[in-house]
């Protein structure tokens, strides 16, 4: 038996494995976007940043043989793209939603353009921690293979939550996001704060992309990301701008994304494509459930115009 005699139990197990593996890019993108949005800027272009990060990480890992150097370069590329977005949005009368769409298109195209030579070869992967050593069942072992980046993602979510709440720096970011007038009165350089917050948010998205190409699915091709970056932006709204809640939401989305491959692995192929739409339907459903036309969402940064 392919599923090792686990039968239908293979489905929740595969979903747990999916929650761990698939969720990592969501965690990185949403935590980064959380920081950006708390500073009062929205970056819809993170989908492009994710793809660009995936491509550059793969290319660097392939040419240097070091996947971690790839992760570092992906973060730098993300940093630059984030800074570019922030820089353009700071010009008067430029719409940040539209700029995000434009940069999403540009970064995706650029990744396909520059990444063409790297589609065939195989780059070294990032390693994993074996948390399933106690179990004799191979599926359980496989499910509990945890990548280092997953751990880094969890740590950074908690670190960001703590920093936003307890540090002077976090206060400045929140101030820039809540009220420009108050921030200016306090002498806070709003533009520079947003530039830094958006650049760091981009760097996070770049690392999320590195995970896609260097660990799971672990290769570079043009169909690598299918809206994860965008879903992560929606997820921040659902998580009401709290990094910890972003973490839980990412795990939920990872599990939803694993439904259709999990069902396929136990032999249920009926409606494969319908189930593959599950994460998108879930995102939309959660947005419908949490948004309201009458009031701004609880926890929404005051200066965030896009989420009325």
């Amino acid at each position: 038996m392919e599923n090792g005699g686990l039968g239908l139990w293979g489905v929740p197990l595969a979903m747990l494995a999916g929650a761990i593996r698939v969720s990592t890019p969501f965690i990185f993108v949403s935590v980064g976007e959380c920081l950006t949005e708390r500073s009062g800027r929205i970056n819809l272009g993170l989908e492009g940043t994710l793809v660009m990060g995936a491509m550059s990480a793969y290319a660097i890992a392939l040419t240097t043989g070091s996947p971690w150097l790839g992760v570092l370069v992906a973060a730098c590329v993300g940093l630059l793209l984030g800074a570019l977005h922030a820089g353009i949005c700071q010009l008067p009368r430029v719409n940040d939603i539209a700029t995000g769409i434009g940069l999403m298109l540009l970064a995706t195209g650029l990744a396909f353009f520059l990444g063409k030579p790297y589609i065939q070869p195989k780059a070294p992967n990032l390693g994993a921690i074996e948390l399933g050593w106690w179990s004799g069942i191979p599926q359980v072992r496989q499910a509990l293979q945890v990548n280092y980046l997953f751990v880094v993602g969890i740590v950074s979510a908690f670190a960001l939550a703590w920093a936003l709440k307890n540090t002077r720096w976090g206060l400045i970011v929140r101030l820039a996001g809540e009220s420009v007038d108050a921030a200016l009165a306090m002498g806070v350089p709003v533009g520079r704060v947003r530039l830094i917050a958006t650049a760091i948010g981009g760097a996070f998205a770049g690392v999320g992309g590195a995970f896609l190409s260097l660990y799971y699915p672990g290769s570079w091709n043009e169909g690598l990301s299918s809206g994860q970056g965008l879903m992560a932006v929606a997820l921040v709204i659902f998580a009401r701008w709290d990094p910890i809640r972003c973490l839980w939401a990412s795990l939920l989305f990872g599990a939803a994304g694993a439904i259709s491959p999990a069902l396929q692995s136990v032999g249920i192929t009926e409606g494969y494509y319908l189930f593959s739409a599950a994460p998108y339907v879930l995102t939309l459903g959660l947005m419908i459930a949490t948004c309201s036309p009458e009031r701004a969402l609880r926890g929404a940064p005051g200066e965030l115009g896009a989420v009325r």
Partner: peptide, 30 residues
């Protein structure tokens, strides 16, 4: 969704695109 539920129309319309492509795959495969 924008008008009556306050859902951001940019994000929802792009999500609907992914759903549409999944539906198309379902129909042409099934």
């Amino acid at each position: 969704l924008r008008q009556w539920r306050g859902v951001n129309e940019t994000i929802s319309s792009l999500l609907l695109t992914y759903i549409a492509i999944a539906l198309m795959n379902h129909f042409v495969e099934g």
